[in-house]
Every structure is written in C-alpha cells, then in structure tokens.
Design a protein around this nucleic acid. Structure first.
Lengths: 353, 353
DNA sequence: AAGGAAAATGCAATCGATTACATGCAGCCA
DNA sequence: TGGCTGCATGTAATCGATTGCATTTTCCTT
C-alpha cells in the first residue's frame, strides 16, 4: 500500500496483521503455537502483502540453508543425470534445494571446495565422484567443520564417509558368468579409466568369474578404455589387431559397449553372430540399441533416492558422529540380444539356432 | 585458538589481524582500498583462522545470492543435461552457483515457484521449459518483483522474456529438404508432444519444405508421438499399420527416431534400405547408433553458455527494463547412414548403389 | 472470586557480513 | 604554521528472520 516497490518483509506482515513479528514467524513455521485468531490474521496478511520468506535471513539466523550440494564428474552423462534426477526429487520432497557442481575433480577441489560452496551455502555434500583428493574431504568432514558428507556410486577406498553404492564386483562376476554359461571360453574385458574404483572392482569381478571357472584372463584380452563411447570405439580398433580374438567381451559400462560395437560394425563384425557383449548400467538407450544390449542394470533411481535420504537424515540427525554406514544395492542381469550361445564355428550359427 | 569449535567469522579475523571488521571486509572484496600493511595482516589472519565467508550473511546484506535457478523439464534427458553442463560451467566462471529444479511444470509452478525458489535464494531464473503457465512467470518478471528471467531452448509464444533458442522451423525445413533432395517423395513426420512449441515449429518446417517442393503431407503420415524413445517405438507400430508407407520420415528428435528405428527393426524393416530417417539434436548416441543417425545438430554447448551469460548479464546489468532480446542460433545438418537416395524398387537397391 | 497453571504474545538480542558516515592522519602548499 | 585534500580506518546501522525470556491473557480449579 504505502510502499509497493520493495518486496514485503515479515515486518509488513506483522503490521498488517496487527501482531508482532514473533507471532508471524511462529504462525508460519509452527501454526499450532499461536491462537486460531492470530493465525488467520497472519495468513490473510501474507496473502494480502504477497509476502515470501527471505531465505538468506533465515539461513543466517538458523545456521542452515536447506540446500545440498551435489558434486559429480559429468552431468552431461546420462548415468549421472538420471541419478541427479532422483536426488533432486527426493530433496525437494524434504524441502531442500539442490546445488550442482560439475566436473568436480577438475577444479582444484581443495580450498575452493569449502570456500566456494560450503560457507553456509549448503548443509551437506553428496559426492558422486571417487576421484577427488581425499585430504580436503577429510578436512571438511572432520569435527572442526563437520560437513555431512556422503559418497554415492563411486567411493574412495577406506575413506571414513557414509556411502551408497552397488555391488560392482559381484555384478561384474554375474555378467561374466552369464557369458561363461553361454559356453564362451575366450572372454575379454573392456576396462574403465585407470585409477577409478569402479574400474578396479569390475575388473576384479571379471577375473574372479574366470578364475572360478578355471578360465584364463589373457592380458591382451583386457583392453584399456574408459567410460565414454569414443573410448569404446578405440577399443574396437585394438580388438581388431588381436591375433586370437575372444568370442565374448564384458564392457565396463554401456557407453563403452556401445562405442565398441559401433566400432566392430565398421570392420564388418556382427554382434551377436561374431561376438557377444555385456554392458553395465542399463542406460535407456541400451534397450533400443541394435542389438539390444545385455547388461547389468544398476538401480539408479533407488541409488539417488537413498543417497539423498541418507544425506538429509545425516544433516538433520542429532548425533552427527555416527559411525559411517555403507549401503550396498544389488544390480540385476538384463539379458537381451547382444549375447548368445557360443558356437565354435560361427558360420554354422544360423543353422543351429 | 581460544574457541576452535565454531567456524570463524569476520570478527575473529579482525581480532587476529588487529583491524576492524570493516577493513577485513574491504581487504577481501576490494583489496586496493586498504593499505598494503593491513591487507597482508588480513590475509594472514584469514589463513591462520581458516575463515570462510558466510554466504547467508552476505546475501542478506547485499540482497543477492550469486545463484541462478535452472528449471528444466527433465534432467535425466541427455539433451537437457548437456545444456545444463554448459550452463554450469559458465555460471561457475562468473562466480555463480547453480540450483536445479527438475520436472518444473509438473509441480504447481505458480505459488511454489516464487515461494520456494526466489526468496532471495536465486538472483535469476533460467527456464528451459516452455510448458510452464505464463501467468506466474509474468508476475515474477514484472516490476513489483522483477526477477531476471530468460528462456532457453523452448519458449512461450509472445511472452515478453529474453530468450536463446535455435531456429527450429528452419532446421526442420532443412532436414526435410535433405530427404527431398535424396529423391524421396513420400515423406512422413513423427511428431513431438502436443502443445509443445518445438513440436509445432518442427512440424511447420516439415510442412513448409513439402509445400515448397509441391509434395503432399498426408495426415496419416504425421504420426503423433513425443520426445521419448518409447513413444518412437509406439510410432513404429502405428507406421506398420499404414496401407501406403512413406519412404522417409523426419522425426521430431533423436530419441524418437531411435525408438522408431528400433521398433521397425522388430518388424524386419531395415534402415536405410527400406526407409530413411532424419532425427533432431545430434545426441552423442546418434553417431554410434546403427545405422548412424542423420540429424540436425543443435549447438547445445553454445546454447547453454550463451543463455547463462545472458542471464547473468541481465542480473548484473543496471537497466533491468531493457527490451527483451531474442538470440537465435543455427542448427546444422549432419548426414550419416540413416538416410540414402530413394530407389523406387528397394530390392534393386543393393545393385544400384 | 481468588489463585495458579498454561497458553499466547511481545520485546529485543542475535546471526555475520557490508557500508554510510565519521574520524584520524599524512602530505602538501601558501 | 595553518589549512586543505584525500586516503585509511573505525563506528555503528543495517539486512530480515528467529527465538530466549518476560509479560499478559485465558481458563480451570477450588
């Protein structure tokens, strides 16, 4: 009325409702602590003035921001963006905003990390990137600062943080056993980026399955690649140079598998006729690829949801010094067209099947 | 030293450096306004105390948050997540944080929109979703509140907001002309979700190209679908029921095209032998799909970067009442394996090519 | 009707930084 | 030496909500 150019504050509401600011605050945040009369007047005043809370003021006073920071290696990657989707959904449900920090490890994750982001800007950190330097994280999470911190998907070996992950090693073993079960004996692996925890675990699972079946994991059958399609493509080139080629490959993830298959096709190799391939993740594209990709499905929605839940519990929970809890979810083998029974002589395959 | 359990404030730094808080503040935000001596002492004190700024306090005082809100229809979708990637990169460069709000239109975008998010939580809104109700947006952007608002990718017809987009109609025309140039005469369209601006523009471009070439756009050749793979898959079923089938299709985007092709394959149809297909977007997967997808490449990185730049300029610029500016970027035809010259009798194709 | 517990409300301090304004001080010129 | 300019610094108000404590009101019991 009197001064329409500024956004209304709690003072304006108080004046309009003829109560004190304390009552307005209480009416809004714990309605049952004020009289019905006052409550009604406050609500009406809010409506009339168009009041909205100033988050900065509340954050300052309450020493929290109702915001979580999600740090990931690559938002552009479908795998992470699906998880982010689930995280965001859960966070909003609990009244939290989501700040994103992409390519986290790329920036100097030390000083910047807590300077830029955790100066009361976020109440907790959800870290989807295992390749971040451990030191600064420890500094953040330890008592003096004590930021609630949770790692999801990837994690750092023996780091004392809460985590939510999937059983990568076992899943890789299942994937490889699937190939063995189909009669394949020469089974290779397309490996993820060096230094990555997932890479190591998936390779270990692959080796374990082979070992248990008494099969050999020939060094030249383990082709170094990464998590991206172009690296899968490069792996195909490498594959073509092998004297003796495996009849099946377990790829560290779907993107790599897809790039690999796309590369093989350029050389006239056909999947599944000439080779069987298992991926990892079950991206949306995997089902629509040709051939539809056999893969280990990671419960991405559950992963994101549970991670967000756990982090917010951590933030809101009283005893912050709880022992780190590790949640492990299972992956599921999804059999599609990219794997089939091994036939010694491929040219007979059509006849046999 | 004395009280290590609380995070240090500017007071602590001031005490340690033996200056006033005003000097500390100035030393940190405009170093050339204090003496060299004071500056050095402040920096050292900061180092020693491990001080970090409390963003909430600064936001409260300065009435800004150095944060932008990015609202999108679906983060899980590669198309948007790539753009978000570029937005985030640019924002961080300019010292801004990025809050994300997913499935924006799904929530009631009215009250919640400015209640939840724009209460000094964000300085501006980057909207990647054209299907949000116009009313509340106008209310936000108009003088009383005056939130800087920019639409990217999609927009709302004749809404008075700044925007950054691509030339969808023209690009669709180019895509369709490509098919016509290959000799196709019976050309269909897989349409996006109803009500979406992009859907309308792309269909218009398709129609325009046909009209200019004197070709017919038969109603039954325009198959309703959406932007998702499963809808492309459904479109394939519909396609199979046609008495007379087009020899080429222009799909509203790559996902739809991929779903469509994957559906056709189940019916034994081969692309490009039996049909040519053009997509839209040039997702990373498009190049590795089989057949590699011919498509209109949208400059997604540029889109995101320019949108973020423009929004931040808007936020920081003095004259907020500038006339809405519309930036339009061009798309580029990427020819790959999913389109080829039309041969009247498909069974002769191999011989001819 | 008086007394007292419980509920409702108000007052004012507080969160931590920024900044308008006041003050101090050095350097310079007449 | 006195007065002026301009830089460096300090004092204290300010941003807008929350909340500990004090006070008032309500309502119940005897």
């Amino acid at each position: 009325m009197t001064n329409p150019r500024k956004t209304p504050t709690i003072q304006d509401v108080a004046r309009s409702a003829k109560v004190s600011t304390a009552t307005v605050s209480r009416a809004l945040s714990s309605p049952d602590r004020v009289s019905e009369d006052a409550r009604a007047r406050v609500f009406q005043a809010v409506e009339q003035t168009g009041y909205t809370l100033n988050q900065a003021a509340r954050s300052l006073r309450q020493r929290n921001s109702r915001t979580i920071l999600v740090a990931l290696p690559d938002i552009g990657n479908t795998f992470f963006s699906t998880i982010l989707d689930a995280i965001e959904r859960e966070a909003v449900l609990r009244g939290y905003g989501v700040l994103v920090a992409n390519r986290f490890a790329a920036h100097d994750s030390g000083r910047r990390l807590h300077e830029y982001f955790l100066s009361n800007r976020a109440d907790g950190l959800l870290l989807l990137d295992g390749s971040v330097a451990l030191e600064p994280l420890l500094a953040l999470a330890a008592p003096p600062i004590g930021v609630p911190l949770l790692m999801a998907c990837e994690d750092i070996d023996h780091a004392p943080f809460h985590s939510v992950r999937t059983d990568n090693e076992f899943a890789a073993e299942v994937a490889t056993r699937h190939l063995i079960g189909l009669g394949h004996r020469a089974i290779g692996h397309i490996r993820g980026p060096v230094g990555n925890v997932l890479t190591a675990e998936r390779e270990a699972g692959y080796r374990r399955a082979l070992a248990l079946a008494g099969l050999e994991a020939r060094p030249e059958w383990i082709i170094p690649a990464g998590f991206e399609m172009r690296q899968g493509l490069a792996a195909a080139e490498r594959f073509m140079t092998l004297r003796e080629r495996p009849s099946a490959m377990f790829a560290t993830n779907d993107e790599t598998a897809i790039g690999f298959l796309s590369g093989l096709r350029q050389h006239g190799l056909d999947c599944p006729r000439d080779i069987s391939v298992v991926g990892f993740d079950d991206l949306a594209f995997a089902a629509h690829f040709w051939p539809p990709l056999t893969t280990m499905r990671q419960p991405r929605e559950a992963l994101g949801r549970i991670a967000a839940e756990a982090l917010i519990d951590l933030i809101e929970g009283e005893p912050r010094r709880r022992v780190p809890r590790h949640t492990v979810l299972s992956s599921e083998l999804i059999v599609r067209g990219s794997t089939r029974v091994h036939i010694a002589a491929p040219e007979l395959a059509e006849a046999v099947l």
